[in-house]
Amino acid sequence: MNSSSKQLQSAQSMNMQSRLLAHAPFLVACSMLVVIVAIYGSLQTGVFTIDEINLNTAAAMTLMLAATGQTIVLLRGGIDLSIGGMISLGTVIAATRFGDDPANILLWSGIILAIGFGIGALTGLLISVLRLQPFLVTLAGWSILNGIALMILPTDGGKVPEWWIGSGYLEFLGLGTPVWILLALIVFWCWFRATRLCTIIKATGSSEKSAFLSGVSITRINIITYGLSGFFAALASLYLTTQIGGGSPNIGTDYILPSVAAAIIGGVSLFGGRGHLFGTIVGAYILTLIGNLVFVLRVSSYWQPVMSGVILLLAVLASSYAEQKARKRGS
């Protein structure tokens, strides 16, 4: 009898609890979402219809896309504040360059996505080569990109064609565009999380030194993660233009800290290495649905930031509590 398989079995039952603890932050986020949906659903009719799902997903989608990139950077142990500038820049480029010709729009969409990845990659390169702190580099990046956006389009304006806006509201099999984007994101993540690259990104976030000693090129990982973050920010900006119908040179700033918050609420660790996109998606839904909750509770909409702040703190405290527990168990 091979002893290894025996040890595997006994280990798996022993593992159950520590695995549960490892997922505690995500489970906490899920239960918070359930509570919010329950309250919302008990006070408002028609919450559990496809229309409502389409509507709320549409409201959450820009944040979800922005937070997807943020999640990847957070997993690597970094942070990307420049996405705010990239989102603004994306909307103003679209609003000023799209025109009516679909071919042209396709071209410029590609250019915007390329700019997003390129600038992110440059950020990652800079962080590696000069060994800089991502917080300050991406803060400067935000300022620069936001400034460029303002130079292209000093105030809200420009326009994208009606059919482009309409493409954000298409329905297929009863599900709207944002829900299909969400499904695509989920499929993407199911694949991505199983790749070597994702393991390497998480490993680098968990312990840069260990990853380096194991032969990981930190520069390459920085270029990829910040590049992906810029790419998803650009994607968010394209989606956003279908919502606002034009360009807005400062709008991205509203997504910087919420994108971090969505990830953290969903159980992604600020210190890197732990978390996944599903948590971030739940976090983005929570932050979005708080707005609806405030509405159906008939309290001042000003309570919305209070609630999101409290939920953020609760999420962080829950995960640090779980971590302490896990650590005690480990030692």
Partner: peptide
Amino acid sequence: FPSIATTREVRNL
């Protein structure tokens, strides 16, 4: 090898 569960996270070892 001495027995170690292969799915445990290294942080808990």
